[in-house]
């Protein structure tokens, strides 16, 4: 595919995930204003940090009077999962110059990772898959800015914004991505173990349970795949 088509497909394939993130952006903007941030500061967070969960948690911590040390430590732990995304995509982007690698890293969110890793997993040999990556990044980034702004400016006008349960939109989008990925028993085992561990470790501070759960799922999935390969006598893929 040519560059422009890769770019447009990346943006297009990210649209369902943007749908899931819209409520989060709006609620974030409203919450940040309620916590005492100015509209400029809210937009600076979205423009410069661009990490939904970390932004949410930072704003909530400020509202409870936490210090900057706690907030930065929490940001680090909440964002630890991004190192896994970074490692997963590294083999596919390692050939790119730094002027590509640095911006793509800046824009690497859960949503873009979910979409882009599927594109890199396809066998189609295209030298321009990083344009797909960029298309996903920019559509996600621009929509996040718009939603944060709407939330910051108009969020206070809607009472009980958080009581609608709009956060289910993100659960639905991530479910729609993960379920079709479950094609083999090691993949199902990885999902079940990660989900169960996430529940068991939910009480851990700073969302550490999320990273623990992902690692447990990865280990079990890989172990099952190796076990199956050993049983059937075939070499692992």
């Amino acid at each position: 595919m040519p560059r422009s088509k890769e770019f447009l497909h990346g943006a297009r394939d990210t649209l369902p995930l943007i749908l899931g993130a819209i409520p989060f952006g709006i609620i974030f903007g409203a919450l940040a204003i309620a916590a005492g941030f100015s509209t400029g500061e809210v937009m600076a967070l979205s423009l410069l940090v661009f990490a939904g969960s970390a932004q949410f948690i930072a704003v909530s911590l400020v509202a409870t009077g936490a210090g900057i040390g706690v907030i930065l430590l929490t940001t680090f732990v909440v964002n630890l999962r991004h190192t896994l995304y970074s490692a997963t995509l590294q083999p596919f982007i390692r050939h790119l110059p730094i002027r590509w690698r640095a911006p793509l890293a800046f824009w690497l969110t859960d949503e873009t990772f979910a979409v882009v890793q599927q594109r890199y997993a396809t066998v189609a040999a295209s030298p321009h898959k990083h344009w797909y990556f960029l298309g996903s990044c920019l559509s996600m980034y621009s929509s996040w800015q718009l939603c944060s702004f709407v939330g910051a400016v108009f969020g206070q006008a809607v009472p009980n914004l958080a009581a609608w349960g709009l956060d289910f939109a993100m659960i639905a989008t991530f479910t729609g991505i993960v379920v079709p990925m479950l094609r083999s028993y090691p993949q199902v085992a990885a999902a079940v173990v990660a989900g169960a561990t996430a529940m068991l470790c939910y009480a851990l501070p700073y969302k550490l349970g999320l990273v623990a759960a992902a690692l447990a799922g990865i280990v079990v999935g890989t172990g099952c795949e190796r076990l199956r390969a050993a049983q059937t006598g075939s070499a692992p893929r």
Binding site: R81, L84, Y85, A87, T88, P91, D110, F113, A114, Q117, D167, F168, M170, I171, F174, T175, I177, V178, M181, L182, P186, Q187, A190, A191, V192, V193, A194, G195, A196, T197, A198, M199, Y202, G209, L210, A213, A214, L215, A216, G217, I218, V219, G221, T222, E225, R226, P236, R237
Partner: peptide
């Protein structure tokens, strides 16, 4: 490399199930 193939499934399941 084999383990990293499970990152998307494990991470998304870890987000979705407690939700």
């Amino acid at each position: 490399r084999q383990s990293l193939n499970y990152v998307p499934i494990a991470m998304l399941a870890a987000i979705v199930v407690p939700g």
